Simulated assay, not measured.
Amino acid sequence: MIDAVHTDLVTVTYPLAKSWTLDLVAAVVAQKASQDALLADGEAYRRNMVRVAILLAHP
């Protein structure tokens, strides 16, 4: 999922189990720190902040 955000931020949904989907863009937009991290230089920092946004999201 994290690679999907880095590859294509336009990806709207990511399929989960039993017809559940996660809106990756909405997950990142909901977390201000994740938005800021996408503009930062550190690759590891960006990946970790996107991971946090995904973990805090609700499918």
Results as ranks from 00 to 15, higher is better:
D3S: 00
T21M: 07
Y45D: 08
E43I: 06
M1N: 01
R51M: 06
L56Y: 07
A57Q: 10
Y45I: 09
A33R: 03
M1T: 04
D41K: 15
Q31D: 12
L38D: 01
T7D: 09
Q31A: 10
A27W: 00
W20D: 10
D3F: 04
S19P: 04
A44M: 07
V5A: 15
A26K: 03
A17P: 05
T11H: 00
D41A: 08
A17Y: 07
Y45C: 03
S34D: 01
A53S: 13
Q35I: 15
T11F: 00
A53N: 10
I54E: 00
V50E: 05
V50M: 11
V10E: 12
P59S: 11
T21N: 02
A57R: 05
H58Y: 13
V29Y: 03
A44K: 09
P59W: 06
A37V: 04
L9E: 08
I2D: 04
A44L: 13
A26H: 06
L16D: 05
L16S: 10
N48M: 06
V52T: 10
T21E: 12
L38Q: 02
D41P: 15
T13W: 06
V52Q: 15
E43Y: 11
I2M: 05
Q31G: 03
Q31F: 01
L56D: 15
I2C: 02
Y14V: 11
D41V: 13
V52Y: 15
A17M: 14
S34Q: 02
Y45Q: 14
L22P: 01
T11V: 07
N48A: 15
M49Q: 15
L56W: 14
L55K: 09
V28F: 02
T11Q: 01
V12R: 09
V5L: 14
K18D: 15
K32M: 06
S19V: 10
N48L: 11
A26Q: 03
H6M: 15
I54D: 02
M49T: 07
L38Y: 01
A17E: 09
M49A: 15
T13S: 12
H58G: 08
R51D: 04
A44F: 13
V5W: 03
S19N: 14
A37N: 06
N48Q: 08
R47Y: 13
G42L: 12
V52I: 15
R46W: 03
A27C: 07
L9T: 14
L16C: 08
N48W: 05
V52M: 10
M1W: 10
A26Y: 00
Q35C: 13
A17G: 10
T13V: 13
A53P: 12
T11P: 00
D3I: 04
Q35F: 03
A30F: 01
S34Y: 00
A33Q: 11
A27N: 03
V52R: 14
L9M: 04
S19K: 14
R51F: 11
W20M: 10
D3T: 03
K18C: 06
V52D: 13
D36P: 07
L22W: 03
A26R: 02
Y45V: 07
E43R: 13
V12L: 12
Q35H: 12
H58C: 12
